[in-house]
Design a protein around this nucleic acid. Sequence first.
DNA 1: AATCGCTATGTCATCTTAGATATAGCGGGG
DNA 2: CCCCGCTATATCTAAGATGACATAGCGATT
Lengths: 118, 118
Amino acid sequence: MAEKKTLLLRPRLYLDEGLSIGPGKIDLLRELGRSRSISAAARELGMPYKRAWLLIDSLNQGFGRPVAETAIGGSGGGGASLTPLGERLVAAYDCLQTRLNKSARTELATFMALLDES
Amino acid sequence: MAEKKTLLLRPRLYLDEGLSIGPGKIDLLRELGRSRSISAAARELGMPYKRAWLLIDSLNQGFGRPVAETAIGGSGGGGASLTPLGERLVAAYDCLQTRLNKSARTELATFMALLDES
DNA sequence: AATCGCTATGTCATCTTAGATATAGCGGGG
DNA sequence: CCCCGCTATATCTAAGATGACATAGCGATT
């Protein structure tokens, strides 16, 4: 009996020259929104702080305005939070992902079939 | 007047451990089908022969059977052609891509809006 | 004013990847 | 029987990405 593998589509969008969004950045943004800290989000996702900061910065640069706001110093040493743009990005991506996976279910099944037909 | 950029989705599928299919391999297969030569396809796409051969070989390995058959020697020095599997892969990808872009048009527009809202 | 944890940023070693280069083998056709 | 163009494959080098490490600044809290 063949196990039913479900193939999840997590698209990467190339929005503009040097501006792309994929599952990695979305996961990072989502985690940042939860933890309100870049370094906590990085730890959670098992990546170095620098990489996380670079990813977020690339989004800030690419959009021309920040997807996250950061605070330096203060209680807890500082922190970060998603801007409305950042939150909308995550929401839009989730929406897109759900839509893609729903509507392409039969096409994805075709690929699985090509894999399995021995 | 803002130019209407259309954002084309060309997904990459992670089918199995070490087996993925994305726009690059599909373009290569398609070109190979046309030119019936690995090296000609590589030239056309501006990549080194070795890379093209590697990509095709990874598909052959990943599927456990060839997506392309090759001939060594003979008139013209040899050549290559898509197997039925290879042709079906291209067709399935095109089908998937079309479906995704049609059904996600509104979601993609959301992203474009996030980009433009200054 | 000393502490603390986080942001911010630079430097450097390293690891991976890609590409360039070289070479061998094949077999039909001139 | 030699030539040609293509497949096939190894080797070496260049380039780029990545992560580890170091360091500085900030400001609320104590």
